[in-house]
């Protein structure tokens, strides 16, 4: 399959071609690519795309996969509705 048809980040609709362009432009860490492209910022919070992205970075930079540092994981891990949070607060007020 061609790079432009291969999806890396399904939440933000980024293809292998998109991320390879960014790596070629000098964005060679997961943190940087996440911020410039939103790869990993969607509802899945990077569970699907970031391991794939790490492999692309390793392949293009010639680094060992073990050297590609993971991106920071942020709470709340799974999406929570604002309405649920508000009710939770009422319960312990």
């Amino acid at each position: 399959m061609e790079d432009k048809d291969t999806i890396i980040c399904r939440c933000e609709d980024l293809t292998r071609e998109d991320v390879r362009k960014l790596i070629a432009a000098g964005y060679t860490t997961l943190e940087e690519i996440k911020r410039i492209s939103r790869c990993g910022m969607g509802p899945c919070q990077g569970r699907t795309c970031l391991p794939l992205l790490a492999r692309e970075i390793a392949a293009m930079t010639g680094k060992d996969l073990a050297e590609i540092l993971p991106a920071k994981t942020r709470p709340p891990v799974k999406g929570i509705k604002l309405g649920t949070l508000e009710k939770g607060r009422e319960d312990h007020e």
Binding site: L82, L85, G88
Partner: peptide, 25 residues
Amino acid sequence: FLEEMAAKILPLLPPLAELRVVRQW
């Protein structure tokens, strides 16, 4: 912060109650 934010914003903008928080920092 998540709970306080929800409690402050929802009285002003009620329909946002249905939105899921995906990340905080």
